[in-house]
Nucleic acid binder design. Sequence first.
DNA 1: TAGATTGTTAATCGATTAACAATC
DNA 2: TAGATTGTTAATCGATTAACAATC
Lengths: 208, 208
Amino acid sequence: MKEQTISKATIDRLPLYYRTLRLAQDDGMDIISSDELGRRLELTPEQIRKDLALFGQFGKKGVGYYVNELKFNVGKILGLDNHWNIAIVGIGHLGVALANYQNFIALGFNLVALFDNDPNIIGKTVNHVKVKSIDELQSCAKNLKIDIGVIAVPAQFAQQVADKLVKANIKGIWNFAPVKMRVPEDVKIVNEDLSVGLSRLSYYITGK
Amino acid sequence: MKEQTISKATIDRLPLYYRTLRLAQDDGMDIISSDELGRRLELTPEQIRKDLALFGQFGKKGVGYYVNELKFNVGKILGLDNHWNIAIVGIGHLGVALANYQNFIALGFNLVALFDNDPNIIGKTVNHVKVKSIDELQSCAKNLKIDIGVIAVPAQFAQQVADKLVKANIKGIWNFAPVKMRVPEDVKIVNEDLSVGLSRLSYYITGK
DNA sequence: TAGATTGTTAATCGATTAACAATC
DNA sequence: TAGATTGTTAATCGATTAACAATC
């Protein structure tokens, strides 16, 4: 239907809109203007209207946006209404932190499985989910309908975990290992390379 | 000296160059071309040359870039040679994961302090660093010369931690709480909002 | 020298901002 | 109605890509 390609910049802003709308909802707001959204997000109102207009007409002229309705629609654009099933591979410190990540719930994701290859970790329970052997990934992926695999293993094992996830037919990978992964085109990857953010901060404070 | 403003896009790529150069170095490469860098990073060689040229002339025409030299220079641009001192506030699951983050060392940062407000956590040792009470932040910041504060506390406490960090005269904040923080202009903030990446992944797999 | 590859200028492409008609 | 605010077109700004002279 909508054949226009949406820029990465816009897609990056949508989750921020969603978060801000959630907070506005918590504040009991019924209606919010692009101006107020812009103030809260430190973006121009024009940009927000432009972004939203790419997906439909969600506002009322002279009035603004109904908070509930817009939040629902932005959530739908982001596909959060699919309530994707998530599995985490690598239950080290980061894996544990992610397994306990509260925003999974707030964003509608379900944590359905945890995997590791260390016998000392397999069998443990983290946030009500039991850690399974990585060898069970294939069968679990099917039974539990895993949509997204999170890679939280050391860099040198990341590619082989990615291969296993691809073989298990997952749709997307959320990768925390600082390596460029090779996967088929139809598997989407989002890289969460923490060292980028930290190095960026270093750059900014270096000037002073 | 160099008065040109560097775009955020360029600054985001510099850490990736640095990482790739580090790997090339590990592979024993002496010289690398913008073409080869582009292949490894999935970027065009023109873009890489353009980015680097903003900071100086690091290559040899007809030859390429000396890996060691370029890595040194990119590291210097990013300010990694400052060996910034880092403190983490909030030693929950995420704080522990970050305290054990190996890339701190690879990038030249020093983990010098950990803080929490939970008496059950204060006094524990994580990655050879003892967790102190948040009340000691002010005095420690001075003694230990803390440059960067990492916020790994729940969203509702993030702003007050930021205020304390600002008061303690740190230079930059690496913020993992999903909230927009208010700090003076001269304190730099980099937000590491994991829900953005995950929501983006949701968007990409929703189309299929 | 011939081949390769940088650094840089010019051309293109895309994203943001400005402006304003439509309308609640 | 008058005031407010959206949705959208046009103008501007910035970033990427293409091209090529310089030179190792």
